[in-house]
């Protein structure tokens, strides 16, 4: 189950990057935890058959590259505009994951994205992290979910 979730999140991220940013060359590898000092963390809560959250970590350079591609403009620092655009992308990826899960009869919903990493030291049945490498930088994903019976 954990591996399947991991793959679903990675595939959704890959699809969204391909569609929205025209970036197709993406590789992934498991990471023990998200390591990046200057990243923007966006947490998306999940409720329903699965309960918990996924945290997306976008390093500053990756974030700026993403917004530069989308807007065709030059952004040089992370501000409210960039954070909001990145949050929406986290929201879109999570929405795509839910669609994939619902195809497997898992009913979940997502909460609006919030900036930050609410690490509350809770125990999770499924906890996994990975790092995705793309031509515009890396992205970290931390999945922390419990299966609600």
């Amino acid at each position: 189950m954990k591996d399947k979730l991991y793959r679903t999140f990675v595939d959704a991220t890959r699809n969204v990057f391909n569609l929205m940013l025209n970036i197709s060359d993406i590789s992934d590898h498991p990471a023990e935890n998200l390591k990046c000092d200057d990243g923007i963390d966006i947490a998306v809560g999940i409720v329903g058959d699965l309960q918990g959250e996924v945290v997306y970590r976008f390093p500053v350079s990756t974030s700026l590259n993403m917004v530069n591609i989308m807007s065709g403009m030059q952004f040089e620092e992370v501000d409210a505009f960039v954070t909001s655009a990145i949050s929406e992308i986290a929201n879109i990826i999570s929405g795509n994951v839910l669609t994939a899960l619902s195809d497997n009869n898992m009913k979940c919903d997502i909460l609006p994205p919030v900036q930050g990493n609410p690490d509350d030291n809770k125990e999770y049945e499924m906890k996994t992290s990975c790092c995705l490498s793309t031509s515009i930088g890396e992205i970290g994903l931390e999945i922390r979910l419990n299966l609600v019976s």
Binding site: M20, S84, I86
Partner: peptide, 17 residues
């Protein structure tokens, strides 16, 4: 600024997906 950022990402995803 928040509105602008969200609108940008939303619009591109909406059209592409």
């Amino acid at each position: 600024q928040q509105f602008g950022g969200r609108l940008l990402a939303w619009l591109i995803n909406h059209v592409c997906a």
